[in-house]
Simulated assay, not measured.
Amino acid sequence: MNDNSAWTLRDILIVTVLGAVFGVLYLAWVQVWLIAQAVFGPVTMDVVMGFWFIVSIIAAVIIRKPGAALFSELLAAATQILLGSPAGLLLLVTGLVQGAGAEAVFAATRWRNYRLPVLIAAGIGAAIVSFVYTWIRFDYGALAPGLLVTMFVLRCLSGALLGSVLGHFIVEALYRTGVLSGLPIDHAKRTARA
């Protein structure tokens, strides 16, 4: 685990803001999914699903402390509920599942490795855990095996690309602006350069 795993008030505020911002973006992303689903069919959810994992990646990379991925997804879910999402309180379970999938990968590194391959693994971790959850919730066992494999592969690719790679580029762009100065990511980058 990190030498400094205690959360500061600033860490909590940053993750809260990220959760709120991405909660709004997640609600908007539902519209993208609905339009794409009308055009491309049911596997569209798996193609776009990775974006709903992105805050867990971004928060974890910036804060670098246990719980950042999970906490950020729960806050994004809570924001969606407060904004009137028709999914209601079930979104908290969804946020918990998605955040836990990413958090498990960071935990496996003892919250010490935030390089792109680990981020990709975290996005895939969120995809796998969310796939199990949606399998149970929507009775995927009734689907054809070929369709299930396609959905699973698409969701994992989406988690890797829309969740992790896009999340990585967003964090790097934010870091270059200087707004992450003094945060754990900044300390880690400065230490790596020393």
Rank of each mutant, 00 (worst) to 15 (best):
R110K: 14
S85V: 13
L90H: 05
F71R: 09
S158N: 08
V15Y: 06
W135N: 09
L13H: 02
L13V: 15
G123K: 03
L119A: 08
R137Q: 15
M45P: 02
L83V: 07
D186M: 02
L75K: 01
I14F: 11
T150W: 03
V55S: 08
T134P: 00
I54R: 02
V43D: 11
A60P: 00
L148N: 13
H187G: 02
G88P: 08
V118Q: 01
G23A: 04
V43R: 06
E103M: 04
G141H: 10
I136A: 13
W33A: 09
N4L: 10
I57M: 06
I58F: 08
R190S: 10
L83K: 11
Y114R: 09
R137V: 15
A6P: 00
K65D: 06
V55L: 07
L27S: 14
V32Q: 10
P145F: 07
N113P: 00
L162I: 01
R193E: 12
P66S: 08
D11Y: 04
H187T: 15
A126V: 02
V179W: 05
A78S: 09
L34H: 13
A160R: 00
L9Y: 05
A78G: 15
A142D: 12
K65T: 09
A142F: 12
V179A: 13
R10D: 01
V118P: 00
A188D: 15
G101V: 03
V171M: 11
A87E: 12
A60F: 03
H187F: 14
Y26L: 03
L147W: 07
G50L: 01
Y175Q: 07
L25D: 03
M49P: 00
L96H: 07
G88S: 12
P42L: 13
G41M: 11
A144S: 11
E172C: 04
D3R: 14
A122C: 05
T177K: 10
K65V: 07
A38V: 07
A6S: 12
F51D: 04
M45N: 14
G141C: 01
I128W: 00
A102N: 04
A126H: 00
M45S: 13
V48E: 05
S85Q: 12
R190F: 05
F152M: 09
V171H: 06
A192M: 09
V132N: 03
D186K: 06
A192N: 11
A28W: 01
T16Q: 04
G125Y: 00
R112G: 03
T16I: 08
L157F: 01
V32C: 10
D11V: 05
S164K: 01
S130I: 02
V30D: 15
V21G: 04
Y26C: 02
G41S: 14
I63E: 04
N2Y: 10
A28R: 05
Q31Y: 14
P117H: 03
F22N: 12
L18T: 13
W7N: 05
W33N: 13
A104L: 15
A188H: 15
A173Q: 06
I170T: 08
T177E: 09
L9E: 05
I81P: 06
V149R: 08
L74P: 01
L183A: 08
W29A: 08
L143K: 08
L74Y: 07
L92M: 10
V30R: 10
A108F: 00
R64E: 12
N2H: 15
F53K: 03
L166A: 15
